[in-house]
């Protein structure tokens, strides 16, 4: 084990997959010599050349279409959007085309592609560069949606995503790019659709995604001092979702808090709450479910407002105490 940032872990996964499979190529804005807006593809252009690391114009619909079309004829593109907010320009290719062709064509088509994109607030990027749009994507049958919280998971999940024969949207929290964590040496992959319990506990289940997993762990550490044992559950893949692990955890703790940066209404937390309400875990609930989420506003610029927008350790602690009251 050595410590890598999430950005370095993703870079390693990309390099290993480019090395392993000649059908894999990268495509995106400024991913060439510059190495991408967040430096994730740094060094890959020099190592693999301009045909494997394709630097594009600012042209999101064409990038997405190039990925969908090349995947349809057997290539395995990994496309990068500079910010998930820019998916609006690429939406037809992702939602109407890539996600649906297999079904529309009666099963004959395959779209083995990955669409990577950074998401999330807290970096003074304001309303058009800070969103968390995972719920839009989870709502579309045909897409898979991955959201890692640690460098080790990011590397292993991305390798699975690249080897998957479906259109996988891989969402990377910008803050996590620069956070280090242990990453195993050598070849490994983390399967899609398997949750990970990041911290076991018996009193309350906190289902958190990406950067909020870390906020939830901090909250759990603080609450442990008060004798409250929080179970922090990281779904890692939002779809396919490991409902079994979530249901088992809630049956054990009898309490559920969900946490994500996306706005609350119609969000991932609402889906998790509904899954519990429809499952046998409902009878085990000792308190109403609480959702901690981004405020229901466009992401504001000013630090004082942006901090208020975001969920944090304290909001998670308050929610846990509320369900335990």
């Amino acid at each position: 084990m050595r410590d890598l940032t999430l950005s370095q872990a993703i870079n390693e996964a990309l390099a290993e997959e480019l090395e392993r499979d000649p059908r894999v190529f990268l495509i995106g804005e400024d991913i060439g010599l510059h190495g991408g807006a967040f430096g994730v593809t740094k060094g890959l252009f020099s190592r693999f050349g301009p045909d494997r690391v394709r630097n594009t114009p600012i042209s999101e619909a064409a990038i997405a279409g190039a990925a969908v079309g090349s995947a349809l004829v057997g290539a395995r593109p990994v496309a990068e959007l500079m910010y998930i907010d820019f998916i609006t320009i690429a939406m037809d290719q992702i939602v109407n085309q890539g996600a649906k062709v297999k079904y529309m064509f009666g099963g004959k088509a395959r779209v083995p592609m990955v669409l990577r994109a950074p998401f999330g607030a807290g970096r003074a990027n304001a309303a058009q560069h800070s969103q968390s749009l995972e719920a839009w994507l989870c709502h579309v049958p045909g897409l898979k949606v991955v959201m890692p919280s640690t460098p080790a998971d990011a590397k292993g999940l991305l390798k699975s995503a690249i080897r998957d024969d479906n259109l996988v949207v891989f969402l990377e929290n910008k803050h996590l790019y620069f956070q280090k964590g242990p990453v195993p040496e050598g070849e490994y992959a983390v399967p899609l659709g398997v949750a990970d319990i990041k911290r076991p506990g018996r009193d309350v289940t906190v289902v958190a995604t990406a950067r909020q997993v870390h906020a939830a762990i901090s909250a759990a550490e603080a609450l442990a001092k008060e004798g409250i044992e929080v179970e922090v559950l990281d779904p890692r893949t939002l779809w396919p979702l490991d409902t079994e692990t979530i249901i088992a955890s809630v049956k054990k703790t009898g309490r559920l808090v969900t946490v994500h940066e996306a706005v609350k209404r119609f969000g991932f937390g609402a889906e998790v709450a509904a899954i519990i309400a429809e499952s046998e875990a409902f009878d085990y609930l000792d308190a109403p479910i609480r959702r901690v989420a981004g405020a229901e506003v466009p992401v504001p610029f000013s630090k004082s407002l942006e901090d208020l927008f975001l969920p944090d350790e304290h909001k998670i602690i308050d929610a846990c105490k509320a369900v335990l009251a």
Partner: peptide
């Protein structure tokens, strides 16, 4: 659609097939 015959599909979105053909051409290059 019939992918075996090289028909990557009709399309209900006006202009939706143009980026896909462009992508298929890129795929052939790759």
């Amino acid at each position: 659609a019939d992918l075996d015959l090289g028909n990557l599909g009709a399309n209900g979105i006006v202009g939706g097939g143009i980026p896909i053909a462009t992508g298929a051409a890129l795929g052939f290059l790759q």
